[in-house]
Design a protein around this nucleic acid. Structure first.
Lengths: 258, 258
DNA sequence: CCTCCATTGAGTACGTTGTACGCGATCTCC
DNA sequence: GGAGATCGCGTACAACGTACTCAATGGAGG
């Protein structure tokens, strides 16, 4: 009835007209859920567990949140608000996008369960909306809105793709209960068999030769990010300010000399 | 005990030495699971449901697969095998990568549940391995392996990011049980309030002005893909063949006529 | 002031999930 | 021809999300 009226969790008012004072709040529940999900994974953030965390009865949560799915939407929007995009656009689009990208990555690493959340697309929560405003505001002066959408998608695609991989390998370890070295030791026979079989030369090349996988995650991320920013630069008019990538100081783009 | 020995589903042999003839097979179970997940979502592909689909008892599946998570890994690898990468590298890297990207997208759209699967990173199944061989083989002759990894990550990031958005909006409709027009009608008051509030000028601009969201999904994907391929082109040596389409001097590569 | 009743926190209960365990039947190896 | 591993499968259990129900609560209308 009234439940189905709201297509969005944000369309549903939190506080009713009158009645007894609520003992808890959406914010409190959301924060508790995030705390649990951060520490033990999203699947551990069950309704009972969250309720216990704040000292409530299991069913009390449903006075504040219509369903677990909606609570997860609240969690997702909440953590999006952690990304610092104040003062954007600052005038230096490259610095702005870098700060955004690193903030996004840091947030994902703090809250790895984000990777498993279906952002049911247009569920625009307040934090997500603000993020869009600031992020797309960076390029808004330089390109038409459609171009902006494309460039932002490119940037987000890279950030999310990279971090997702980072997270999922960490998650795989956590789930299996093995440490990374132990896991690698266990995997060695399989990988070794694949390499020695000769059927997968490029896989073997990755295992044997690639240095990228041995760099720190930060460096891997940085390298990819610079590439994406260079790509964005080519789509902007020269009035956009940041110089062309070719003669940037400390340029480390595609094809280092060594 | 012997269960924990295997870190990988692919390290565990399917057929044991002796005993009665198995009535089913991993492949059969995997296919049934995929069929159900395609039609009703991954959460409907429960062990009981899958067993019923092939006419088996619920617990029989555990003779073939150690856990549901491992079954999902099998499913994921299976559908990766659907992407047609035969004949790569063909010599035209741009055509190869386009075919790969569109194949990847088509596969994701056929099996939307893929978006929710944590690819526990190095669980290299046979199809995934073959895919890596063919895909990375496309650029292997032109760039060092580390550069290749970066470029492929860029491409995959775009494909996955775009399709993920495509899927999650479709999923949101499916879950809510509403049709797209009905959903939009329900959302209208919320969106309208946001736009009229004046607090979100760029969001408003997207809603009011952007044409990209009204293009077909194929066109949106194509546009973004071209951008990524252009970006990759700048990282390749000129011997790679495919010329830059638009704003570069058209040095027609030897032999490539497109 | 009192009364009304929507809303509160919370207990109980139901249906569904993944899967541990154990059974008799079946097949390969020695 | 045993011996014993492996088969399909029924039963059982713990944990999940959440529908339903209840007495207690406290602002609104008189």
């Amino acid at each position: 009835m009234t439940d189905a009226e709201y297509v969005n969790i944000w369309m549903r008012p939190e506080r009713p007209a009158y009645g007894p004072k609520p003992a808890y709040s959406r914010a409190q529940i959301t924060e508790a859920a995030i705390r649990i999900a951060d520490a033990e994974g999203l699947e551990s953030a069950t309704m009972r567990r969250i309720a216990a965390e704040i000292g409530a009865g299991a069913m009390s949560l449903y006075r504040y949140v219509p369903s677990r799915d909606n609570l997860i939407e609240l969690m997702a929007d909440q953590v999006m608000g952690e990304i610092d995009v104040t003062g954007m656009p600052s005038g230096d689009w490259r610095a702005d996008l870098t700060r955004y990208a690193e903030g996004q990555r840091a947030m994902w690493l703090r809250h790895p369960w984000i990777a498993t959340v279906q952002r049911s697309l247009p569920s625009f929560g307040p934090s997500q909306l603000l993020l869009v405003e600031r992020l797309m505001g960076v390029l808004d002066a330089f390109v038409p809105i459609d171009e902006n959408l494309g460039l932002v998608a490119l940037l987000n695609g890279h950030v999310e793709g990279t971090v997702r991989e980072e997270i999922s390998s960490a998650e795989a370890f956590r789930r299996s209960g093995l440490s990374e070295p132990e896991w690698m030791a266990r995997s060695y026979p399989y990988v070794d068999r694949l390499v020695k079989s000769g059927e997968y030369p490029i896989f073997a090349k990755i295992v044997m030769e690639a240095r990228q996988p041995h760099l720190s995650r930060e460096e891997q991320f940085r390298n990819g990010l610079e590439r994406v920013l260079d790509c964005i630069a080519t789509a902007l008019p020269s009035t956009a300010g940041s110089p062309m990538p070719a003669h940037r100081e400390g340029q480390d783009g595609p094809g280092t000399g060594s």
